[in-house]
Write a protein that binds this DNA or RNA. Structure first.
Length: 576
RNA sequence: GACCCCAUCGUCUAGUCAGGUCUAGGACAUCAGGUUUUCAUCCUGGGAACAGGGGUUCGAAUCCCCUUGGGGUCGCCA
């Protein structure tokens, strides 16, 4: 299909935040890997906020020019992730009613014929030339340079080729790359909105490739051409691109267009300073597997023996998201969250992640830390972007999430928890009535740091009475086995009182238990609530006991207490 | 290794551009008390930083230089 070409703006974009700026256009340009990494999410967020706050447009472009790596299974996971975060795009891939636009297509692989004339232009003007070295030759030259401890730069051998030879090579159909001829007489100076002026002395930059042997443009060339054609005025991206920017500046100059405003944001790291990478999950899993000496896949993780062996043998292999998650569950460890989707599954609220992410590498100034999207859009500016790198601190994110949940309307929390369960824990919706679920949600709200907390600690609500067991842990022993009388004695004593309780409501249950505690254990409520809690849940933790009992219902409560009492002898034996 | 970027509590940061109001503020984490039927909350209080060295200046967290440390890039990957 013939792409429509946007007429690039020739006037210089005015800098910074001027209200008179005609039309600010920012873009996020990921390569299509499954899910969105938090680093990418932060870049996207900044681009989006800047455009939204300045009456501009935010575009999405997919950089899929790596034929070797772009799999056809290119998922739309990251589009979902963006949508979940509340980052919408004005132009880009079409998805659920958004996207499209006049400057597409928005997949680079569909723009191949767009780049060619620009390559030709540079070739014709002598700003670029053809180079016939093979990858192997170049690799060897690099290796040699390294061995001799000198910096390798392409030697421009192809420039020495006489025109006839070049003609001959071309006639032979020799594969070749096109290189940009980097001017070597003056420094390259790039202005960055965050970093200021960045200079590169002449001779530091080699003649880089702009078109690969397979005819595809390199990233550098495609980015520059696309940004120009799409009318991008502000390029906000991670600092890993800073070194590339001089190439982009040169290319734009040679093509005769105006440079955009660049803003390079510092990188995000793990607390230990390592790169936050998708591999961290596999790393965690491998370490655990190794420390336990597992040489076959544990039951229930859903990984085949063969896959397991391959995964263990090749450290570069990564488990699929689902496989990694179920293995972690079986091993009872938690995986580090890396992708936006991981945070979603872990029960973080999108608005909280947005808030926290925006604080990594930017701040509104003063003491303001917690804010919503509209505040960010209103306040965000390039001038307050932080230069130094940041470490990702999950405990602070968790604290923010807690605050947001606490501040939420009760009804709102029920709805959000319901949506969460729908996506990730349908069991909870299936096993409970609407009324029960509401009680379940409300009784958990004030103690939840994430939407996952209620389901993690409340599994016993959706288990059958027969599934409840009482592993003899320290806490359980203390609650039901220790002392004279012990928890079992108290359970036996209160059992009929509970069975006769009417109505089965928190207030009434409280009355029963307090009265009983008053006469039987000097008002020490814990002496009776804790045994009941253990009996009905199989563990020492639950929502407030009266709520717990109400949600469970009288029948299940009595049944579980009876089963617990029936298990008394085993338990006492195990507790010794 | 070469080039580039960066440097305030354990962490994210305010303060730096326009040097004095900074005995450096906030948040998270941490520690000590307290509330609480479990867990989690919640309340009160404490400790905690201008990387080091030289300049400039009446005066430096703020400006300059060096050192050190951290990071990025050095692909016919993006």
């Amino acid at each position: 299909m013939a792409p429509r070409v946007f007429s690039p703006q020739r006037s210089s974009p005015t800098s910074g935040d001027g209200m008179s700026t005609p039309s600010i256009r920012t873009r996020f340009a990921p390569s299509p890997s499954g899910h969105l990494h938090v680093g990418g999410a932060r870049s996207a967020l900044f681009c989006w906020a800047f455009a939204r706050g300045h009456n501009g447009q935010f575009l999405l472009r997919i950089e899929d020019t790596d034929q070797k790596r772009s799999s056809d299974a290119a998922s739309t996971g990251f589009l979902e992730d963006l949508a979940w975060l509340g980052i919408d795009w004005d132009e880009g891939p079409q998805w659920h009613g958004r996207g499209g636009g006049d400057t597409g297509p928005y997949y680079q692989s569909q723009r191949l014929d767009i780049y060619e004339p620009f390559t030709q232009q540079l070739l014709d003007s002598g700003a670029a030339y053809r180079a016939f070295e093979t990858t192997e030759e170049l690799d060897a030259a690099r290796k040699l340079a390294r061995a001799e401890k000198r910096a390798y730069r392409y030697d421009r051998a192809a420039l020495e080729l006489d025109p006839d030879t070049v003609e001959r090579f071309l006639a032979e159909g020799r594969p070749h790359a096109v290189r940009f001829k980097v001017p070597d007489d003056e420094p390259i100076v790039v202005h960055d909105a965050v970093l200021g002026e960045v200079r590169l002395e002449p001779g530091e930059l080699e003649d880089f490739v702009i078109r690969k042997g397979d005819g595809y443009p390199t990233y550098h060339f495609a980015v520059v051409v696309d940004d120009v054609l799409m009318g991008v005025t502000h390029v906000i991206r991670g600092q890993e691109h800073l070194a590339n920017t001089s190439k982009h500046a040169l290319l734009i100059d040679a093509l005769g267009f105006d440079r955009p405003i660049w803003a390079h944001v510092s990188l995000i790291f793990n607390p230990d300073g390592s790169k936050m990478s998708k591999r961290d999950k596999d790393k965690t899993l491998r370490a655990e597997v190794k420390s336990r000496g597992l040489d076959s896949p544990p039951e229930g993780c859903g990984i085949s023996r063969e896959h397991w062996a391959n995964w263990l043998a090749d450290k570069k292999l990564q488990l699929e998201t689902d496989a990694a998650a179920s293995l972690a569950r079986v091993l009872e460890i938690s995986l580090p969250e890396i992708d936006v989707d991981d945070f979603r599954r872990a029960g973080y609220l999108p608005e909280v992640l947005v808030n926290y992410l925006s604080l990594l590498g930017w701040s509104p100034g003063g003491d303001r830390e917690q804010f919503d999207r509209s505040f960010l859009v209103e306040q965000f500016g390039l001038d307050r972007i932080v230069k130094s790198p940041a470490k990702f601190d999950r405990s602070k994110l968790l604290a923010f999430n807690l605050d947001a949940i606490q501040a939420m309307d009760a009804d709102q929390f029920v709805v959000r928890l319901q949506a969460f369960c729908q996506d990730f824990e349908p069991e909870f919706l299936e096993a409970m009535s609407t009324h029960q679920f509401k009680l379940f949600a409300l009784s958990n709200k004030e103690r939840s740091k994430t939407l996952r907390d209620p389901v993690d600690t409340g599994r016993f609500f959706v288990q059958s009475d027969e599934q409840i067991e009482w592993p003899m842990t320290k806490a359980i022993r203390k609650a039901i086995c220790k002392g004279e009388p012990n928890g079992f004695d108290r359970l036996a004593a209160i059992r009929d009182l509970l069975a006769a309780a009417e109505p089965w409501e928190p207030a009434h249950l409280e009355e029963i238990l307090s009265t009983w505690a008053e006469t039987n254990c000097e008002g020490n409520l814990g002496k009776i609530t804790q045994p009941i809690r253990v009996a009905v849940s199989g563990g020492p933790v639950s929502p407030p006991i009266y709520d717990t009992l109400e949600i469970l219902g009288k029948k299940a409560v009595i049944n579980r207490i009876d089963r617990c009492l029936a298990n008394r002898e085993n338990a006492m034996e195990a507790s010794l």
